[in-house]
Write a protein that binds this DNA or RNA. Sequence first.
DNA 1: ATAGGTGTATAAAACGTTTTATATGCCGAT
DNA 2: ATCGGCATATAAAACGTTTTATACACCTAT
Lengths: 340, 340
Amino acid sequence: MQSKTTIRDVAKAAGVSITAVSHALNGKGTLSAATRQRIMETADRLGYQPDPLARGLRSSPLGVVGLMLRPLDALGTYRPTGVDYFTRLIGAVAVECLERNLSLMLLRDLSKLPRQPLALALDGYIIADPLDGDPVVDLLQQASLPFVTIGRVPDRPAFNDWVGSRDEDETEMVLRLLRSKGAARIALVTGCDRNAWNLDSMAAYRRWAEGYGMPARVVSRPEADGTEGGRDAVAELLQDGELPDAIYCLTGRHARGMLDELTARGIRVPQDVQLVAGADSEQSRSAVPAITAIDLDPELIAAQAVEQLTAQVMSGKPAEHQPLSTRLILRETTLGGNRG
Amino acid sequence: MQSKTTIRDVAKAAGVSITAVSHALNGKGTLSAATRQRIMETADRLGYQPDPLARGLRSSPLGVVGLMLRPLDALGTYRPTGVDYFTRLIGAVAVECLERNLSLMLLRDLSKLPRQPLALALDGYIIADPLDGDPVVDLLQQASLPFVTIGRVPDRPAFNDWVGSRDEDETEMVLRLLRSKGAARIALVTGCDRNAWNLDSMAAYRRWAEGYGMPARVVSRPEADGTEGGRDAVAELLQDGELPDAIYCLTGRHARGMLDELTARGIRVPQDVQLVAGADSEQSRSAVPAITAIDLDPELIAAQAVEQLTAQVMSGKPAEHQPLSTRLILRETTLGGNRG
DNA sequence: ATAGGTGTATAAAACGTTTTATATGCCGAT
DNA sequence: ATCGGCATATAAAACGTTTTATACACCTAT
């Protein structure tokens, strides 16, 4: 780890000016072939490597896209057990960037200081599940950095550069399904992060409940509580009154906790209560019985996000929002036949 | 996208020197509270954001770890279908970095020009499956950037900063298993990338074959050929002579192709031929019959790689290589009971 | 002899910061 | 009156490059 050799060292060693060295190494200027040759050799001998930062000082974009995962920032840990959505998303986004000759950089909460030094020099951002009044969104907008979000920005209804499915549609799909399987009293369990997923799902649920004259029952638990939060939610539903005959639980780990708690209390799933999780994950697959869940399809979301971001960065014109239709993976926590 | 406001603009607007601005914004120097306040407000009003590159020019590490996936560089595409090892690895590495307050940057082949401008400014690298005589390894070593590899560096037996399992041990484990299930003539199918996985597995296979007096049969197909390469390999094995009674196929997609081709030819798996894949993937899980495969455990590998890299970057002393013991996931392409 | 080219090389400015050294004015103490 | 010290502010150097403008020597054509 010797102290760096600079262009000046090479110049001195070769007995020329630093301009000569720069020109020789970049194939510019009007040097004689002999001088060029000599400089190259000297640079080689000294193991000279130009400093990329100093070089970048003279403009030119970095060719790097930033990715921020707001739910994980909120969570306090970046590796929640049993959740594979985010690692899949990261990998998929990375791969989409590489395909386009871009690098991907993963950062944590930009609004928290000390900030990653490069953060505001990146070419663009993808923000997963921005919060209501998210400081990160403000920051990027102020720095006039292009960005695309995964999921709507709650407090910016006019902002169109987001990808993913409409959470209202998703919620209605689940409710329709449960109703078609005979459920009449459906409860909703949400997380506490103020992102579009929680907020819009809840709004859609309330509208739907009202439309069908069904009493709305909503329980919220912090995402960070994990499976324990799910167990809590069951307790709350039980003490609140009569058990619902179906539960739509957004957070995957909550759903798993609920299933465990229900089973522990002798309540049969799906015979007594049906259960649908809002996000498929390792935990919904491996649960017994396996939990019916929404397939978030991170690979497709990633592809769309990167496509939209690059289209936007390149052309400057905001792309259209293309809604994504999601798929429900039917497993064992919902009843088999249609009764509706 | 207005032209950038620099520290000079702020200084002019606030009627002070650029030194004053720098000091005010970084909480240094000996400015009066009033001046400090005024400068901050001016900077805010102009939406000033210090240029990270110019700032970085005065040393200080970037706080970014680079990740390169050599097999994907070789492949020509960054999203081979049916392979989930790399996206899982990327996600897991990212998450480990974030946990340590580092950013992760994903880059493609460093040895190819034009190079990502920041590439050589990163704090350290993780290289997955370096090749024999890999130019990327040379490059990093020459730039004296710390790095850790996933998988041994083939042409550097003394290099100890790598994580992952010993491929020889893995191979022996598989061969032992197949032997215990009655296989007597085992063939090996490898990829063509000259990485430790292919090279060391082959070497171990040959040694083992010699030890047991078993004729060695090796077929190699380019990784890029995918399932088609697997079908080809079956054809080659069949025309070459008598069909082996077991096959150890390193590349997951090859294995899937082999299974399909064997089935198409009316050869029963596992009754006529047993099959083990060297890497678990979506394709080995979803195949019918499901393919017995090695669990590469990308999450654990990622954790170890980042841990070792940071330990190394921090302290400068090379960590020990801690071999990782891998697990075989028994599925339907190997026989049930032990016959050995 | 001189003007204009041509081939080769360099000085100096620029990029946007941070850091170090220096300047200025004011006060209280000699 | 003058000096030392303190509070405040700035000039200038430094970081390592690239780029622009300029210098110099030599040659050729007038």
